[in-house]
Amino acid sequence: MFKKFALVAVSALALAGCNDQAGSSGASRDVISAVGSSTVYPFATVVGERFASATGMKTPKIESTGTGGGMERFCAGVGAAHPDIANASRRMKKSEFDKCVANGVKDIVEIQVGIDGIAVGESIDGPKFALTPQDLYKALAAEVEGKPNTAKTWQDVNPALPAVAISVYGPPSTSGTYDAFKELILLKGCEADPKMKAMKDADKDAFEKNCTTLRGAPYYVEQGENDNLMIGKLAKNPNSVGIFGYSYLEENLSKVRGITLGGVAPEYDAIASGKYPGARPLFIYVKKAHIGVIPGIKEYVTEFLKGAADGGYLKEKGLIVSPADVTAKANAAANGMTTLDGAELK
């Protein structure tokens, strides 16, 4: 009996060894592989499904790694082992582009697929805040005007606001939502301060550092990537303010409502037109060298733009359609597969 057992064990080992060899020879792939932003992920997955049912090809594999992590993988090289598409909730950075080029990924097609809004929201039982980016900056920055921030309630920040203790739930520093919050809301609020504006002109790095270094708990509480959890926390703590993706606000209107920023509420039209401060573009980056090698990339991109068009199905999922000129540019880039010029990037 133990001979039999040993035989089984050895053959299982041999089998595993076999597969090792089969795996490492994986030179080609018949599934599109996309990596990147967790904000683009829900849209990319829907497009993937539609693409599969329309063409009969395999459903693309879409990984949710965050924009930065996705770029890292995307830029690692050309070949079946590397992803074909990077999803991004911000534009590619110059440093990332340089890394791509250094690794042989020279031809990259940039397509803006839509806009995402970062909503600032509160529980429907909340005190009906009406904030400005400046209020948020003054409430959350670690240092205001060179002195440690002492504000305890919203009233300390702005006399017009209620005397409610400052408590903001926000994304962790690794997420794209956090980057966008810093860039779109905090920096804007900071700039409104004339002293900081002067600092920006003199020393840009110090300005950014000063404006975006946040206070810790109980003022700014990082909530992890899971936005559903944050909705639950807000419902339990009606005096708190939350920062999350617009699609979560739209889906949970029975529990939370948007807070106006500078008098503009986080609503579809206001975000699409750029009036609401918390709007950011969403991109997909396509590796041109993989087109024609990995089947279906072109069709996938076409499907994405079809879904992202005005009246397309991604609007139901919470994507905000980009303005006509941006859409036209995206379509042109997808049709001609025009590559990105690194000089354009920051």
Binding site: N19, A22, Y41, T45, A52, T59, K61, E63, S64
Partner: peptide, 12 residues
């Protein structure tokens, strides 16, 4: 951590 709609057919 990926969206994979088709159940895997093999180890790779």
């Amino acid at each position: 951590r990926a969206f994979i709609a088709d159940p895997p057919a093999g180890l790779s």
